[in-house]
Design a protein around this nucleic acid. Structure first.
Length: 937
RNA sequence: GCCGCCGUAGCUCAGUGGUAGAGCGCUCCCUUGGUAAGGGCGAGGUCGUGGGUUCAAAUCCCAUCGGUGGCUCCA
């Protein structure tokens, strides 16, 4: 015992795991007492309107029951570093955290256990919050929000109502209040044909608005809303008991769970996101986003320019067939037309073979349709289209390679210049006509899909021969327009956004259905529409969709007054039925960055003052996973845009700079046959040789995503318990670039741990805990410190935390080496070094700083300055090349001129030897960098 | 098939025209009443390959191979 005591005394202040935890506990308590990470809003005590604001947002997590694994904090550590840095630079930093807490896993857990999703979700949130706090993140926890809170989803519902009460004005392309539509239709400023809405003069046939029946008028208006009801062929997943968005279906299976998905018509709430498609593409241009993410969004939206072309149908004077093409210049090469199996024209045909084909196509999943991608199928309809230019008859086929959901659901097939049409024509022996020749004059038997020169494209009415593809397109479109057979058109791959789900654990829609079946919105005063409790959460597994909330019959059947519908719209006693669908998991994440700015506001979703300050210029930096490139990030931009149009927000884009942290992987082990072996069933026999414990067979080490099944998940609590949070933070940042994916290797943590120990030992006597400081400045160390300040500041801005840490390591190594066993830094230098370390390892940095004589919260300290002149040396070792090959280096003044350099270099034996007696033909001097001697003969 | 990104030490990564670097791992030495410890010295790279531009190329250009992420019957 006595010996132990003695040993403990000697090393009582060694920076080990126990001391790290002790420091971290005390510092975190200190920060809470000081409320150190709170940032005031306009109007609050301490708010300074002259401060520059920096809004740094993390993608908030879905709190699952399993807690955090080491991959979660990666981005959070990155943002914490730049936030702490910007605060030290004097900016007002908004750095909040919250919970994306509606969603399927909690509901599925409820189905298994009967525990209310609110209970499990709250437990998970508490775990996540505790774990996040252990990292010492500088979140302003007073701004925490959860999407499941009534105070939050009340405003989610309010925003949805904003969309419901507006339409996209075709004259401006902007979201506009719906009453403008009603007024302009009744005054004739806008006209309709019952489907679309335009300014007068742009539609061939229009309805006389004021003579229309009231219900017809309401139908037209309802059909224009940004949030509208529509009977859609949806992706119905019987196993999950819900419909899914296109984005949630991968290869005909649900993204979650991999269950089969079938196509089914269903009345659903939609968002008219397609009317914003152009703006969503164009506005990407000015955003500081990863290139790959912009590309993905553009591809996802899939804008393509072309023409709509109408073919009359022979023998059916009342019917025309409209096709969409991006190559109207190839119209003379259209030798057949193809419609999708779901196309209405198919209903005109009695042929049983046609219907057999369509039924079969409908029953095949998307996956089956795609797996046989080369083999085309189809049957002729027995109908013919009349070519709008030549008047020739063109056979019409039905084939499932044409999709009802894109363009018009019908195409003109040009087998000479489209690979798919070519394959189809070849299989069914249909004419192939070449109407485009390559620019270089060569001809080819292959299907030529590039641009070129039009050939074989003339008849009495029109000739395109000799025109380039671009000219031919324009000529053809003009001809079609003036002959009433078509027009210029843009279509998108993007579809309108299916927003209804048949689940329980989501936001209810603030809308009811009256006795006539029409919709009536809940008034603002009636919000929130609270989610009712249910006795059981079991989905009704059926081919006929049944929303879960339909089980809450008392809640569903109510009156207009009780539901919160304004008496102006319906008398309070009117019996109504509530909407039983709920919003999808994306809803809450479409606006959470707005709520953080003013999280407790009960009068508005955000105050005017808060939005003017925090949302001016949008979120300055948004960090999260690249997997959200086309879903969350597109939806969020859409919501932000329509709220901007309606005057509720100061910018049309939410996130100015976007950054994706990489995926954190882990080692996993694989047998020769490719089978994976759990990490804990493998041992390392000798260096880098691994064998399976059960069979002794050698296994290969691979890098894989962390997953429960591989048993390679690392829990951050364990790492923090052993090394402390500062080491954890440093390790994850030092592993590599923040946006690269990289493998966790517990063995390497000790590297940065030792760095912190060296830094601690540089400044602290490990026996006494007293500071080790000197009074006279070591000039070399001072210069190195200035360089480190410059580099670390630059690197943090670039989110290059790995190289910043490398610079800190180099500084500590340098200072330790220069001073030998003597104290290396003055109190002032120690303070500056601690402040540099602060953003990365805030606990130990604050402790070091305090022990060296500068107490106080490190986040409130100022970022140190550096002196430019300290970054350059007076005397340098100039590298010398002879004929471009490095031959040695010569000491000289940094600013030596050519003559000086030449004489000093020629005084060096090694250089003279390298010249081998040759004369110097040319001397290239890059001052301060290098000199290159080009020898003559 | 198309698009993006990446190939630098055994491993993970810095280094965007000018002497190839860091951490881990490895050799050897020292220290040890801090022990999966500390300190020191060192080895280890024709920068994927082949061309080109340049006084000079890991770096710029072209080609090629390998890896990785995304899109894909979208007319």
């Amino acid at each position: 015992m006595a010996e132990d005591t003695h040993a403990n005394e000697k090393t009582a202040f060694r920076y080990d795991g126990a001391l790290a935890r002790d420091i971290e506990t005390r510092r975190q308590k200190h920060w809470e007492q000081e409320n150190a990470h709170h940032v005031p809003n306009p109007g609050e005590v301490g708010f300074n309107p002259d401060q520059k604001k920096f809004y740094c947002l993390d993608m908030f997590p879905y709190p699952s029951g399993k807690g955090l694994h080491v991959g979660h904090p990666l981005g959070y550590i990155g943002t914490d570093i730049i936030c702490r840095f910007r605060r030290m630079k004097g900016e007002a930093v908004l750095h909040p955290m919250g919970w994306d807490a509606f969603g399927l896993p909690a509901e599925q857990y409820a189905i298994q256990t009967g525990v209310h999703p609110a209970t499990t979700t709250q437990t998970a949130i508490n775990t996540y919050r505790r774990q996040l706090k252990a990292f010492g993140f500088s979140y302003d926890w007073s701004r925490e929000v959860a999407t499941i809170d009534q105070d939050y989803y009340r405003w989610t519902q309010w925003i949805w109502l904003q969309a419901y009460e507006s339409f996209c004005d075709p004259r401006t392309g902007k979201a506009t209040p719906i009453h403008v539509l009603e007024e302009d239709l009744s005054t004739g400023n806008l006209v309709t044909d019952g489907q679309s809405i335009t300014a007068p003069g742009e539609l061939s046939s229009t309805l006389t608005w004021n003579e229309l029946e009231k219900t017809k008028q309401l139908d037209v208006i309802d059909n224009q809303r940004l949030a509208y009801l529509s009977k859609q062929v949806v992706n119905w997943c019987p196993a999950l008991g819900t419909a899914l968005a296109n984005e949630e279906v991968i290869d005909g299976k649900s993204e979650r769970g991999g269950h089969p998905v079938v196509r089914k018509p269903l009345k659903q709430w939609m968002f008219r996101i397609t009317s914003f498609a152009d703006r969503l593409v164009n506005d990407l241009q000015d955003l500081d986003w990863p290139h790959s993410t912009k590309v993905q969004q553009r591809e996802w939206i899939g804008r393509s320019e072309g023409a709509a072309i109408r073919f009359s149908v022979e023998g059916h004077a009342d019917q025309s067939l409209e096709v969409f093409t991006t190559r109207p210049d190839t119209l003379f090469g259209a030798t057949f037309l193809v419609v999708a199996p779901e196309h209405p024209l198919v209903q005109r045909v009695k042929d049983p073979a046609v219907h057999a084909y369509c039924t079969e196509a409908a029953n095949r999943t998307e996956r089956e349709r795609q797996s046989e991608d080369d083999e085309k199928t189809g049957v002729p309809l027995g109908l013919h289209g009349i070519h709008p230019v030549s008047g020739e008859l063109v056979p019409i086929w039905v084939a499932d390679y044409v999709l009802m959901g894109y363009g018009t659901g019908a195409i003109m097939a040009v087998p000479g210049h489209d690979d798919r049409d070519h394959a189809f024509a070849t299989k069914f022996d249909i004419d192939i006509k070449n109407v485009v020749a390559p620019d270089d004059g060569k001809t080819t038997d292959d299907c030529f899909t590039e641009h070129g020169i039009a050939i074989n494209s003339s008849c009495a009415a029109l000739s395109l021969d000799g025109l380039s593809t671009a000219e031919a397109k324009a000529t053809m479109i003009n001809w079609l327009v003036s002959n009433g057979s078509g027009e210029r058109r843009v279509t998108y791959r993007l579809r309108d956004w299916l927003f209804s789900r048949q689940r329980y654990w989501g936001e209810p829609f603030p809308i009811v259905f009256g006795p006539d079946g029409r919709c009536h919105p809940v008034s603002d005063a009636g919000l929130p529409v609270e989610l009712p409790d249910l006795a059981d959460y079991e989905p009704v597994i059926s081919d006929e969709p049944q929303p879960l909330l339909a089980k809450a019959t008392d809640w569903v059947q109510t009156t207009a007054g009780a539901a919160g519908v304004s008496p102006d719209r319906l008398p309070p006693e009117t019996p109504v039925t509530r909407e039983t669908n709920t919003m999808p998991g994306w809803a809450g994440s479409c606006w959470y960055w707005i709520r953080y700015c003013d999280p407790t506001n009960t009068d508005a979703f955000i105050s005017e003052e808060a939005k003017a300050f925090w949302l001016n210029g949008g979120v300055d930096l948004y960090v999260g996973g690249a997997e959200h490139a086309t879903l969350h990030l597109l939806y969020a931009r859409f919501w932000h845009k329509f709220l901007f149009d309606l005057g509720h927000l100061p910018t049309s884009e939410p996130f100015q700079r976007l950054f994706h942290q990489g995926l954190l992987t882990a080692f996993a082990f694989q047998r020769d046959n490719g089978q994976l072996v759990p990490t804990d069933e493998v041992e390392e026999t000798t260096e880098d040789v691994f064998v399976a414990k059960d069979t002794g067979e050698s296994v290969r080490r691979i890098v894989a995503k962390m997953s429960k099944s591989l048993r390679n998940v690392v829990n951050p609590d364990d790492v923090i318990a052993e090394f402390g949070a500062d080491t954890f933070r440093l390790y994850e940042m030092y592993m590599g670039p923040l946006d690269a994916s990289k493998p966790w290797n517990t063995r390497d943590i000790v590297g940065v741990y030792r760095f912190l120990q060296r830094a601690w030992r540089l400044l602290i006597n490990e026996s006494t805990g007293e500071p080790r400081l000197r009074s006279e400045t070591h000039e070399g160390i001072e210069q190195q410190l200035h360089r480190t300040i410059a580099k670390v500041g630059d690197d943090i801005e670039r989110l290059a935390n790995n190289t910043a840490i490398a610079a800190l390591i180099e500084f500590v190594n340098f200072a330790g080496k220069q001073s030998g066993n003597q104290p290396a830094l003055t109190p002032d230098q120690a303070d500056r070094f601690a402040r540099l370390l602060g953003p990365f390892a805030p606990h130990i940095a604050e402790e070091l700083r305090e022990r060296c004589g500068s107490p106080g919260c490190i986040i409130h300290a100022k970022w140190p300055n550096f002196d430019e002149s300290m970054l350059v040396d007076d005397t340098i070792e100039l590298p010398v090349q002879v004929a471009g090959k490095m031959k040695g280096k010569v000491t000289m003044p940094a600013d030596a001129d050519e003559e000086t350099v030449k004489s000093l270099v020629l005084a060096d034996d090694k250089i003279v030897a390298a010249l081998e007696g040759r004369s110097i033909r040319k001397l290239i001097l890059v001052p301060g960098r290098i000199v290159n001697l080009i020898p003559g003969d």
